[in-house]
């Protein structure tokens, strides 16, 4: 038990260290610049990456726990796609009003993510792993098509939406634009952590969990809504970024075991570390043509996904 708290403590220290390095690392080289002006520029980006990664790690771990499926991930199950579609609809219909009321972007992302989550449960829930993932892929494709159509029809928001699809919004982060999504990410993450014991009981199957006193439907509804909120808020910060919610819980289970009360916080820390490293490496390795955080996480995530799929194939 003490070891497990130790691992989480170490994870926290590593995040702080890497965040300090990320704050100092930029296309202008290593350092915080004269009068710390570079620090002020990079701080929102680093904060956004850490908090979004934390929420995605916990959201992915929760979705896997709810579906009892190691391949569930908000990116693969279409939740990000739904969030982005919600943002696209808001941008198309709100015009300049949206940019003066940035909270509306978070609300639209949450609405889109919730809609896709509900459809996922209705159409793909309660069946096999393949059914869930194929339903998620279908919903994701549908949402992506909607976002692309809107980007095509409304040229004013085209560039922003296209960079959202490629998970490249961290570069747009400012302290004022990230306040709402960061607040929502943290609130959703904390509320998801409270569900850890219920997810442990759910590991034994829905029927056994119910006879252990769990209101399974209520736990599932709450988990899905909170995961949608975490994914939506993370989308507002980063754009569409797959695999963080898949890899982080998997690594956490290897390091600390599958009990959710330890696994979820560590998955959050690993998610934060992954996204922060992906963003920092993406902008440092190729300073002239920086690579989006989503591209870096996909490079890391795709092989892990294939590995997990081959281990858990049905």
């Amino acid at each position: 038990m003490r070891n497990k708290f130790g691992i989480i403590g170490w994870g926290f220290l590593i995040i702080v260290s890497v965040a300090l390095i990320a704050l100092a690392q930029g296309s202008a080289g290593f350092g915080w610049g004269k009068d710390y002006e570079l620090l002020a520029l990079r701080l929102p980006r680093v904060l956004a990456a850490v908090v979004a990664g934390f929420a995605l790690g916990i959201g992915g771990g929760t979705q896997q726990g709810l579906f009892r499926n190691p391949l569930a991930d908000p990116g693969l199950t279409g939740v990000f796609g739904g969030a982005l579609l919600g943002i696209a609809i808001m941008m198309a219909s709100g015009g300049t009003w949206v940019w003066e009321n940035t909270w509306a972007i978070s609300v639209a992302a949450f609405a889109g993510a919730s809609l896709i989550s509900i459809l996922l449960v209705i159409v793909g829930g309660g069946g096999s792993t393949s059914k869930l993932l194929l339903t998620g892929l279908g919903l994701n494709a549908f949402a992506a098509a909607g976002t692309l159509i809107i980007a095509n029809l409304f040229s004013s928001s085209r560039d922003v939406l296209l960079s959202g699809i490629t998970g490249d919004w961290l570069g747009l982060a400012t302290l004022s634009s990230i306040m709402w999504p960061i607040g929502l990410c943290l609130a959703a993450s904390i509320l998801l952590l409270v569900q850890a014991r219920a997810l442990d009981q759910l590991s034994l199957g829905e029927e056994v969990a119910q006879t252990r006193g769990l209101d399974v439907n209520s736990i599932r509804r709450r988990g899905i809504i909170l995961t949608a909120l975490a994914a939506a808020a993370a989308t507002c910060l980063v754009g569409q970024v797959a695999f963080v919610g898949l890899i982080a819980p998997h690594c956490a289970r290897i390091l600390i075991g599958p009990r959710h009360k330890f696994m979820l916080p560590l998955a959050g820390l690993i998610g934060a570390l992954l996204l922060l490293l992906a963003d920092t490496l993406g902008r440092s390795l190729w300073p002239q043509t920086p690579l989006s955080a989503a591209a870096m996480t996909a490079l890391l995530g795709a092989p892990v996904f294939i590995w997990i799929a081959s281990r858990h194939h049905e």
């Binding site: 009892r68 590991s203 034994l204 199957g205 029927e207 056994v208 006879t211 209101d215 009990r259």
Partner: peptide
């Protein structure tokens, strides 16, 4: 369900666990 769980225990025919819990878990 909460009240029922205080005095009823149920074991299904094929009990499973989604994750690789230890016996201590």
């Amino acid at each position: 369900p909460k009240t029922l769980s205080e005095f009823l225990s149920y074991l299904p025919q094929n009990p499973t666990c989604a994750w690789d819990f230890t016996v201590r878990d």
